[in-house]
């Protein structure tokens, strides 16, 4: 049984949704640019979290409340906690920030930026063709997503579980105590 979709028919509410979409888009893009230009890893992480939260707002606007909640919980929560944990473990100090600053010359930015801007321009040009109507947003809640996930996408769920298991095993293998062989190579290095 499918739950009754929730239609955003109220025009006043719709105007607010569109305003929220544009505001969140601007926040996401600005926060991402700030993240890319930071030299301190912790500052960059905080900007990245703001960017992810803004993307969660965009997802909610586009009628995906379940995806928005998972974006906040898993991306901005779990994955970012992993990053923060690793940054704290590495304890990169002022020296690393100075090395980063030396690497971040404008000349390093120009080439890749121009190349990717060309690709972005092509993407926008392709989007400019064809008809892309503004659609009535029908919210697809957790019920619809769950029905699809454990219906036609059952195989995908199984594959994702195997991928997560492989990730778990690999992370355990990488994080476990050194084997004698790697200890020997490490000793020969130092």
């Amino acid at each position: 049984m499918r739950a009754r979709p929730w239609m955003f028919t109220d025009f006043c509410r719709e105007g607010k949704m569109i305003a929220a979409f544009y505001t969140a888009s601007a926040v996401a893009i600005i926060a991402t640019i700030l993240m890319l230009t930071r030299v301190n890893a912790v500052h960059a992480l905080l900007h990245l979290i703001v960017s992810l939260l803004a993307v969660a707002v965009i997802l909610f606007d586009f009628g995906a409340p379940f995806a928005a909640a998972l974006e906040v919980i898993i991306y901005a929560g779990a994955i970012m906690v992993l990053f923060v944990f690793v940054v704290m473990l590495l304890n990169l100090g002022e020296a690393a920030a100075r090395a980063e600053r030396a690497l971040l010359k404008p000349s390093a930015w120009i080439g890749p930026s121009i190349l990717t801007l060309i690709l972005l321009a092509e993407f926008l040009w392709l989007l400019g063709h064809g008809v892309a109507p503004a659609v009535q947003v029908v919210s697809q809640g957790p019920v619809e997503v769950g029905m699809a996930l454990f219906g036609p996408y059952m195989l995908g769920v199984e594959l994702a579980s195997m991928l997560l298991l492989a990730g778990l095993v690999a992370a355990y293998h990488l994080g476990t105590a050194k084997s004698p062989r790697s200890e020997a190579t490490h000793a020969s290095h130092s």
Partner: peptide, 25 residues
Amino acid sequence: GQPDGQVMFLFILAMAAAEVSVGLG
């Protein structure tokens, strides 16, 4: 008007979680 996009988002989320754990290791 389909939930399939969110299903794909979930798969990308699981993939990103596995990738980050291995990458950070």
